[in-house]
């Protein structure tokens, strides 16, 4: 190649060190992010003797579902040995009404704050945005006392109320911002057509808010499923959610730790948010972005 080539067509793109470094960085960080998931998976399929031999990263020699079965139905949380399935169903019982009620209250509040000129509306909204940052520890003792007084402490209604209370700022923000982005003419047209407050909400606004509903559901399902502290305090011993049960299985066992069972139980607990995450794709990111623009 002595004679110079006459340049034509696309630029030649030699593999530059910068490009190699870029991919090296991405691959190494990807490994850092993936290793825990991988280790969880392989550990959960190993037998305890194999785990004791070491070799954290190795594939299971004889893959076994035994740990999964044990985690699901026989692992001990404290004295009871009914597996993490108890926590799973408790979490479902908490999740479904909490998601519905919190979104209903949040969307209604967001709607009322976006279209209706109610006195003090902007003060209410501003206050809700500020209190979203306050740590839960401030409220816990008074709330326990209040809930005990009105008789919903340690119950499903109690924990649903709690998730509604602490979901309110984000849900309100989400829906208010969405409704505020809709053309005000839509609202005016509905008023001219004679629709009232709740009619406009149910027949005009909510049908248009499907994208926000999806985002809100994703946000609340993952958030409530992953909750630990509120479930621990307010759900009551009978209704402890999966995260609490998981922590009990792993961290308060007596005798020998069954690491394969621990990892199987951990994966089972992570399954719901992981499925939501991978199924929802870009919606999840959108939810983060929508929830992130607080204030």
């Amino acid at each position: 190649m002595v004679a110079a080539v006459e340049p034509a067509g696309p630029r030649p793109r030699p593999v530059t060190p910068a490009r190699v470094g870029l991919y090296a960085f991405l691959v190494i960080t990807a490994l850092f992010f993936l290793t825990p998931l991988y280790v969880m998976l392989v550990t959960s399929f190993k037998t305890m003797p194999e785990i004791r031999q070491g070799n954290l990263l190795g594939l299971p020699a004889e893959p076994s579902l035994q740990a999964w079965g044990h985690a699901w139905s026989a692992a001990c949380t404290g004295l009871a040995c009914n597996g993490i399935s108890v926590g799973f169903f408790n979490s479902v019982k908490i999740l479904v009404p909490s998601v519905i009620v919190s979104i209903a209250v949040g969307s209604l509040t967001g709607y009322a704050l976006s279209f209706w000129r109610v006195r003090g509306a902007s003060a209410l909204f501003g206050a809700l945005m500020i209190v979203a940052f306050v740590p839960y520890q401030i409220f816990i003792y008074p709330l326990v006392r209040i809930f005990a007084t009105i008789g919903i402490n340690n119950s499903i209604p109690g924990i649903v109320a709690i998730h509604t209370i602490f979901g309110l700022p984000t849900m309100t923000l989400l829906f208010r911002n969405y409704f505020a982005s809709l053309p005000i003419e839509l609202f005016k047209a509905a008023r001219v057509d004679g629709a009232g407050f709740f009619r406009i909400y149910s027949s005009v606004m909510m049908p248009m808010a499907t994208p926000m509903l999806i985002v809100a559901v994703i946000l609340q399902v993952t958030g409530i499923w992953n909750d630990f502290i509120l479930g621990l305090v307010f759900a009551g011993r009978e209704n402890l959610p999966m995260t609490v049960q998981l922590n009990n299985i792993v961290n308060s066992t007596q005798g020998e730790r069954l690491y394969n069972v621990d990892m199987a139980a951990t994966l089972l607990t992570a399954l719901v948010p992981l499925v939501v995450y991978f199924a929802s794709g870009r919606w999840f990111v959108r939810g983060i972005a929508a929830g992130a623009v607080k204030g």
């Binding site: 340049p7 067509g9 630029r11």
Partner: peptide, 14 residues
Amino acid sequence: NDGQIWIGGRNVTW
């Protein structure tokens, strides 16, 4: 994708 761009008598395609 193909062809050349010349500016000021120089082939500047690349």
